[in-house]
Design a protein around this nucleic acid. Structure first.
Lengths: 210, 210
DNA sequence: CGAAGTCGGCGAGTTCCGCTATCCATATCG
DNA sequence: CGATATGGATAGCGGAACTCGCCGACTTCG
């Protein structure tokens, strides 16, 4: 398969494919001449993966690069891979460096996670994010502790278990794509649920007009 | 309070405050002279809100503008406001226009939501997103229906109810910020839960080395 | 009164990101 | 043969979110 064909199959423009090749996000095809190369199904699959990660998962190409590197490192455990994906997704919400690094909030988050018994990397960027959320909530004037995350933790726990149980365990690449896709799907469903229950609570206002 | 003071109080640089003023994201202060103005606590609060939405909520300034406009429209129901926030958050994951608009997937999603009994705006951007997720999952070779979203829906439902029950109902602005912050928090917890349960499943590999 | 500093407002410039466009020397197809 | 396609390289584009620098009007302090 030549580049134009690859473009058609994947829905990615030739120019963009060239760009990905240059950036080493897509491995080169096997050269058949000085200026011709042959691509195959793995290239199609990889292109699709890249588009899922950037398009739906909102990952930057830098993060995508890391995920792909982890994926190509064939001696990496599913767990290690999950961590990489985790970090990549978290990297898209970069922790504000200007925050004063509230140690109290950090400690509370760490303790909360420890109480849950979760085995989470001590350097996981999510810890910082949670601490920042806590600080932001307090800045809003709501004096709350890390325990407000309890419903989140509970729901996340159920969801993770159910998904891990019900998902097929095929290739690592599809597992990565699925993780990201389900993350997006959940975020959407959460917003819909919010909308629904808010609507129910406000059933008095059938006409939402002003 | 003058601009430099506002900058100090809010942690936002003077240049950025000026930028926000120019972009009408921050209302002007009351002018005390031709080139002096007085700012107050509402400005501090608004700046903090903007930083929460852009920084933690990953909203573009365009989305922030819409949310702020809805917030300033004081004759808007909490439900209407939630919809605006919802749409703003969804707008950050723009639906790929290049997708062939799979009507079958769209129908399945609509039916799924109808079966749930959720009262969701028929034009909610989330519907399209879910359909695209479905298409993407199928492209990965996994022949699944909209029912794979059932665990998501279940978890989202519980979470929404619990949060709506337990949250204080103070100002609309803080409600918006809280919604966004809790969305971020949940995403993080979800990833952590995934990491944790994957670790448990792979307990044989204590040393994750290669 | 005057020097020094601050303020607001404005336009232009910067940086990063993710492509996109153009050129060119070769290859391939009909 | 000639039209079209390929790959490689370089340059440019367009949007987003600031950031800079200047000016002239003020305020403050001595």
């Amino acid at each position: 398969m030549k580049i134009s064909n690859l473009s058609r199959r994947s829905g990615v423009s030739v120019a963009t494919i060239k760009f990905y090749l240059r950036e080493h996000l897509l491995p080169p095809g096997v050269p058949t001449a000085r200026n011709q190369a042959e691509y195959d199904e793995t290239h199609v699959a990889r292109l699709r993966l890249i588009r899922v990660l950037t398009g739906m998962g909102m990952m930057s190409l830098a993060s995508v690069r890391e995920v792909l590197a982890a994926l190509d490192d064939n001696c990496m455990s599913p767990h290690g891979l999950a961590k990489v994906v985790n970090n990549a997704l978290s990297a898209e919400h970069p922790a504000r460096a200007d925050a004063p690094a509230d140690t109290s909030a950090n400690g509370q988050v760490d303790r909360f996670l420890a109480d849950l018994g979760w085995r989470v990397d001590p350097n996981a960027p999510g810890r910082t994010t949670l601490a920042q959320v806590l600080v932001a909530l307090r800045d809003l004037g709501w004096d709350c502790g890390a325990d407000i995350f309890a419903p989140c933790a509970d729901a996340a726990e159920r969801l993770a278990v159910r998904e891990l149980d019900s998902l097929p365990t095929d290739g690592a690449a599809t597992a990565v794509a699925r993780t990201v896709l389900l993350e997006v799907a959940f975020a959407v469903m959460r917003r819909m649920a919010y909308e629904h229950y808010l609507a129910i609570r406000a059933y008095g206002s059938a006409a939402p007009g002003c």
